[in-house]
Computed example of a mutant assay.
Amino acid sequence: MCSFTNTKQQHRWIDNAKLKLLKLVMKFLKLVRGHIGLDGKEGDDGSGGIADEDLELPFVEFLEKQRLPPKIKSIILYAITFTDYDQDGGEACKKLMKTKEGIESIALYSSSIGRFPNAMGAFIYPMYGQGELPQAFCRCAAVKDALYVLRMPVVSLLMDEQNKLCKGVRLTSGQEILSGQLVMNPSFAVQNSGSHMQSAQEGLNYLNLLGKVARGVCKTNCSASVQLELSNVLLVFPPRSLHSEQLASIRALQLSSNVSVCPQGYFVVYLSTLCDDAILGKECLHAAINALFGLSSSETSTSSNNGDPEPKPTLLWSFVYVQEISQASCDAAVCSCPSPDGNLDYRDILEMTKKLYHSMYPDEEFFPESAASVNAEDDGALSD
């Protein structure tokens, strides 16, 4: 009887702790929602915005002011706002997120939930993989009379001797294509002579490099999620959670056959982390791979919901590599588009692309809305 009473009291204490934690989280979300919706103005419900001085604080300090526990704070920092570097590292942190940036990221996360009926969370992924994005651009450009030449590499640039500007390219077939502007893949650079191109291995323009990102691709036949019914899952390992020298978050995006990126019954997991050193970046990814997968079906994990060991998904195949991150650049000869970065979304790369476009065409609007698309939206609204 005494044992039963103690257990009941313990459950009551746990329930009270959960209720207190829930109140703190709800209070924080109400504060964020009030700031997002009211732009810092007092609302009818008494909720207001976040003070300007708090917006300039490091976001981790602002979360501490809200008395959020470490676990909830870590979830907000690394799984919702997608902070890269260790925010508790003080001056050692390579990039400290300010409260204003954190609130903007939470606003994006909040506005993304429930946008599509078949999406469980705030994150969606294109069918058939990200390769469909340039496919969509190709079709969009074709409508505007763009010309695509496939399987025909460019061997050199055509330069105007008088003004030293690029006027076109020469293909391997010997054909010359003239153009007023030229945008190249960031993995190629122009030699000092301005007439030939060279690959990244032969000489990339390192003045435009922003850092490195280590990437991994894994194939498995079982979900890496604790909830096995979840097929498309994003897993985040906060800084220093797997490796003593892990300075940045490691993200693992698991995709299944329902987005048409692999055969039925299999899963593809993409891993990435920012790094300064290629060797260390690969070591951190291998630590994440070892935490998620086993090399054989007999290997087990030490953590589960009920404390019993559970089998890890078997790693069927994996590959790890490092990419240089370069920013967009444009000079009198040729422009270079930005390289893929370490983010899961396209906010930064789209912003760099817009800046590159406006540097090339300062008087033009970036992807102006056409009358046809406006009419299509109106027709869709009427049909609903």
Score class of each variant (00 low, 15 high):
residue 3 S to F: 10
residue 3 S to N: 11
residue 10 Q to L: 14
residue 15 D to V: 02
residue 17 A to Q: 08
residue 23 K to F: 09
residue 28 F to W: 07
residue 32 V to Q: 08
residue 33 R to A: 13
residue 44 D to Q: 10
residue 45 D to A: 05
residue 48 G to L: 04
residue 58 P to A: 03
residue 62 F to W: 09
residue 63 L to S: 04
residue 64 E to F: 05
residue 65 K to S: 13
residue 66 Q to A: 14
residue 66 Q to F: 11
residue 69 P to N: 12
residue 76 I to P: 05
residue 77 L to V: 11
residue 78 Y to S: 01
residue 78 Y to I: 01
residue 78 Y to T: 03
residue 82 F to I: 04
residue 86 D to V: 01
residue 91 E to Q: 11
residue 92 A to H: 10
residue 93 C to M: 03
residue 93 C to G: 06
residue 94 K to G: 06
residue 95 K to V: 12
residue 95 K to C: 06
residue 98 K to R: 12
residue 99 T to V: 10
residue 100 K to W: 05
residue 100 K to E: 11
residue 103 I to P: 03
residue 104 E to Y: 04
residue 105 S to Q: 15
residue 107 A to G: 12
residue 108 L to C: 13
residue 110 S to W: 10
residue 116 F to T: 01
residue 116 F to K: 11
residue 117 P to V: 02
residue 118 N to W: 11
residue 118 N to I: 04
residue 119 A to V: 15
residue 120 M to G: 04
residue 122 A to T: 08
residue 123 F to V: 01
residue 126 P to E: 08
residue 128 Y to S: 13
residue 128 Y to I: 09
residue 130 Q to I: 15
residue 135 Q to N: 15
residue 138 C to P: 00
residue 138 C to N: 07
residue 139 R to L: 12
residue 142 A to E: 15
residue 144 K to A: 13
residue 144 K to T: 03
residue 145 D to S: 13
residue 151 R to V: 06
residue 152 M to Y: 02
residue 164 K to F: 05
residue 179 S to Y: 01
residue 184 M to Y: 00
residue 189 A to F: 02
residue 191 Q to T: 11
residue 195 S to Y: 00
residue 195 S to I: 00
residue 196 H to L: 08
residue 197 M to I: 13
residue 197 M to S: 02
residue 199 S to N: 07
residue 200 A to H: 10
residue 201 Q to M: 09
residue 202 E to P: 01
residue 204 L to R: 05
residue 219 K to Y: 12
residue 221 N to I: 01
residue 221 N to K: 14
residue 224 A to C: 14
residue 225 S to N: 15
residue 226 V to F: 13
residue 226 V to R: 12
residue 229 E to V: 07
residue 233 V to F: 13
residue 234 L to F: 01
residue 234 L to A: 07
residue 236 V to D: 02
residue 237 F to G: 01
residue 238 P to F: 07
residue 247 L to R: 13
residue 247 L to T: 13
residue 247 L to G: 00
residue 254 Q to G: 03
residue 258 N to P: 00
residue 258 N to D: 15
residue 259 V to F: 03
residue 265 G to Q: 05
residue 267 F to P: 05
residue 268 V to M: 09
residue 269 V to D: 05
residue 271 L to E: 09
residue 274 L to M: 11
residue 274 L to S: 00
residue 276 D to P: 02
residue 277 D to Q: 05
residue 279 I to G: 00
residue 280 L to M: 12
residue 283 E to Q: 14
residue 283 E to F: 05
residue 283 E to S: 13
residue 285 L to A: 09
residue 286 H to T: 06
residue 301 S to V: 00
residue 304 S to A: 12
residue 311 P to K: 14
residue 313 P to M: 07
residue 318 S to E: 14
residue 318 S to Q: 15
residue 319 F to D: 15
residue 324 E to C: 06
residue 328 A to E: 14
residue 329 S to A: 12
residue 331 D to I: 01
residue 332 A to K: 11
residue 334 V to F: 00
residue 340 P to I: 03
residue 342 G to A: 14
residue 343 N to L: 03
residue 343 N to T: 12
residue 348 D to H: 08
residue 352 M to T: 06
residue 353 T to Y: 05
residue 355 K to A: 14
residue 360 M to C: 13
residue 361 Y to T: 09
residue 365 E to Q: 13
residue 378 D to L: 15
residue 378 D to H: 10
residue 380 G to I: 05
residue 380 G to H: 08
residue 381 A to T: 03
